[in-house]
Write a protein that binds this DNA or RNA. Structure first.
Lengths: 182, 182
DNA sequence: AAATTACGTCAGTAGTGTTGACATAATTCC
DNA sequence: GGAATTATGTCAACACTACTGACGTAATTT
């Protein structure tokens, strides 16, 4: 006698290369990123900061003078999401705002000495992890890793990431309705 | 006359290779992962599912028969976090639980046909993105990418990821106080 | 002068993660 | 066989990050 609610039959075949889908690399990316973020995440707990603070701090350090609008496009988050973490970083003296010289409506974001120090501290274990993971690879193979990662990124960012920090400035992303205000 | 609250001086130097830190790759990983997850995230909105559902669904499909405890160790989340999304996946008929044959306390997790189909659908754009990013690389360079990603992962997972799905079964992680119950 | 832009902020909501406590059933230990 | 342990589920409370929509202000552009 079957149960009143028929249980859909469980599938017991592991998902592997069958459908020409690259499960191995999908999984590797998940695990790599999971552990890549684990060290800074742990440190940030000390400051009552989260991963969002780290990202803001990173880009403000990497591209000092970035405006709020530019930062929103880099992070692909909304104004409201940024507001909270940015306010905390300013209140704690990690970031300062400077009125834009050309357009005084703009707020250029700069790290303070404190903010720069924290950014470097957070980048340290990540950089070590990367160096260890690259260890044993030939120069050309390192280039291949960079090529792969860069080509995982959608345009218009693909052609700008992994170059000089200034390449991240002033990317006018085509309007696509993701803004907090219109 | 200085203002009453002295503004910490802004640092205007971009953060680049100065401190021997690999900011380029740190950034590439951020952008690559951001866009890697964007396609499935968008699809999942249709189902009122989030990224957490995707991860559970992926591993249940990849390693059918995985127990709840094993899944918690793979995802490195707590029991409570898993409970919510797992319940939803079961209620919507994507995943079924089967009482463990050896240990009847255990619940083995299996995808249904519906769950397998969704997993494949979500993996499709990710796999295409990976294939496109690998395009133009020599076989050895692809191996280098895998080497890099695998070595970004901490042990005991490093030696298990990117191999056969079964390698993810039964990893007894050393106790480190991250459990929901003791 | 009017429209637009850059930014800030208020209110409400959702998804994902956390901790701690407690309950149940099954297994293992002595 | 009784006790401790294990695997799982669940309740309550909370934190962080993200979202949407609306509104306000100052500065720029038209």
């Amino acid at each position: 006698m079957p149960k009143s609610a028929a249980v859909p039959s469980p599938i017991r075949e592991p998902l592997d290369g069958e459908a020409h889908l690259d499960f191995a690399l999908i999984e590797l990316l998940f695990f790599a990123y999971r552990d890549f973020t684990s060290d800074p995440d742990q440190m940030l707990d000390t400051y009552t900061f989260g991963r969002a603070h780290h990202r803001v701090l990173h880009f403000v350090n990497r591209v000092p003078g970035l405006t709020v609008a530019e930062l929103l496009e880099v992070l692909k988050i909304t104004k409201q999401s940024l507001a909270r973490v940015l306010k905390q970083l300013i209140d704690t003296g990690h970031v300062v705002q400077v009125q834009g010289p050309r357009d005084r409506r703009q707020r250029e974001l700069y790290p303070t000495h404190k903010g720069r120090t924290l950014a470097l501290t957070l980048a340290q274990p990540q950089s070590e992890r990367i160096a260890a993971a690259l260890d044993g690879l030939a120069p050309g193979e390192r280039k291949a890793v960079e090529h792969f990662l860069r080509n995982m990124v959608d345009e218009p960012w693909r052609s700008r990431v992994g170059l000089s920090p200034d390449a991240l400035r002033g990317v006018a992303v085509a309007e696509d309705g993701q803004h907090g205000s219109e």
